Amino acid sequence: MIHFPAQRRGPLSALSLRLAAALGLVLAVVTAVYLDRDGYRDVNEDGLTLLDCFYYAVVSLSTTGYGDITPAAPSARLVNVLFVTPARVLFLIILVGTTLEVLTEQYRTGRRLTRWRKSVKDHVIICGYGTKGRSAVSALLENGLDKSRIVVVERSPASLRQATSAGLVAIEGSATRSSVLNEAHVRNAKAVIIATDSDDASVLVALTVRQLTAGQVRIIAAAREAENAPLLKQSGAHHVIVSSATAGRLLGLSTSAPPLIDVVEDLLTPGQGMALAMRSAERNEVGRSPRELDDTLVIALVRRGKVVTLSDRAGAVIETGDMLVHVRDDRPQPAGTPG
């Protein structure tokens, strides 16, 4: 099942408002009839009770009209002309409006689903919307990826609600199933990020994605244990991030070299000061040393898909087609300051 981003007011809210209006209308008619109950004639000729008033109000508003209770006095007939009849029309409008609301919502959802299926392409699929999945989405958005190009695959109803509330398209189901990944249009995806809660599930997801895409879609997976990283790569993952090992190294840095952990946190935390970025080498930079660039602090090059460090001989000079990995200023710019 595909869940689209939450809207301001859902159909359940609209139905609740209409139900409350209909009940209020019934109670108003019951009150008017009960106050003038002596002006009505019952076939039993024993007078109207409160239950009879409810019965008459419901029968009248629903246009059933059995005729066993009729207005006899002029005041009762006047109330029927000036109040009960307009209330009957309004009651019908509420019922018809409720039906139209449900049908319109179903039609709107179907249209959104059709448009989405036609337009989804070069998107990123996030398998798992836990802590790692949410952090991955935040990083993608910070790097300029539009929300419409992110699709979340998740089984947990609570996580699905969080994803749709964040404005993301979410697909309910397990990412280990081919049918669910096909719903996410995995063959047209740019990348698949596997952020499941267990390494065995991540391996199954990677195998399924590789089988469906024939290795044409980039797979990035998170692993809890370092010993499972080779297995994930054999399963089709192009990159594997070991969360436990990374956390352990950061803990070690915080003990042996505390200032370094502050630098790493600064690089990984958006809007704090420094951030890692990547851009294409400009024409006037080709042939120059990365260390000679005045306005860019380059820390590595990406050449033909491989990382080249500045300590390597190949990284001494920038070549055509290189990507520059650099540190940029990520602090919020004051109003009126050019970015």
Rank of each mutant, 00 (worst) to 15 (best):
E172A: 10
T164K: 03
V209C: 12
A73S: 15
I220Y: 11
S75E: 15
L17S: 14
V96G: 10
L253E: 12
V286P: 06
G248F: 14
D38L: 08
D68P: 06
A314S: 08
Y55R: 08
V58W: 01
V242G: 02
R224K: 15
L324K: 00
L113T: 07
K190S: 13
H238I: 08
G252N: 12
G215P: 03
L82K: 12
E265K: 03
V153I: 04
P332C: 08
A158S: 13
A136P: 00
L260D: 10
L297D: 11
S256Q: 10
A22T: 11
D46N: 13
F83D: 05
P259R: 10
V153Q: 02
I94A: 07
E105S: 11
S254P: 02
K118Y: 13
I94D: 05
I299V: 14
S198G: 08
I69F: 03
I2D: 00
Y34F: 13
L145N: 01
V151C: 10
T309Y: 13
V308E: 03
T64M: 13
V26S: 01
L251C: 07
T164H: 01
G10T: 07
D262P: 02
S13W: 06
R115D: 08
R279N: 10
K147T: 09
K132L: 14
E172N: 08
T98G: 13
H238V: 09
G321F: 00
V286L: 10
R210H: 06
A221T: 03
S138Q: 14
E142W: 09
S179V: 06
G248Q: 11
V33M: 04
E319R: 14
R304N: 14
V58F: 11
S311H: 09
V192T: 00
S62K: 11
V327I: 11
V153N: 02
T104M: 06
V120C: 09
Y66V: 15
V30S: 03
S198V: 12
V302G: 05
L23S: 14
P290D: 02
G39T: 04
A195N: 07
N80Q: 04
V264Y: 04
I318D: 00
N284W: 11
E225A: 14
H185Q: 04
T63C: 12
V59Y: 12
P332T: 05
R149F: 04
A316S: 14
G305Q: 11
L276Y: 08
V152D: 00
G24A: 15
T269Y: 13
I241V: 15
I2T: 07
G67S: 02
V263D: 06
Q162G: 10
K233Q: 15
S60K: 05
L25F: 05
T246S: 08
L232M: 13
H185L: 03
R283C: 09
M274N: 10
S135R: 09
G144S: 00
L82N: 09
A166C: 11
V298F: 06
V317N: 15
L15A: 15
A257I: 07
R111G: 05
R210W: 02
D330C: 05
A257D: 08
L301P: 01
T64G: 13
G47Y: 09
I193G: 00
P157F: 10
R313F: 09
D197N: 12
A229H: 01
N182H: 15
G144Y: 07
R134H: 04
G133P: 00
R249E: 15
G144V: 07
V120R: 04
R155C: 07
M278K: 02
G321D: 04
N143S: 08
L293F: 09
I299D: 04
Y34A: 09
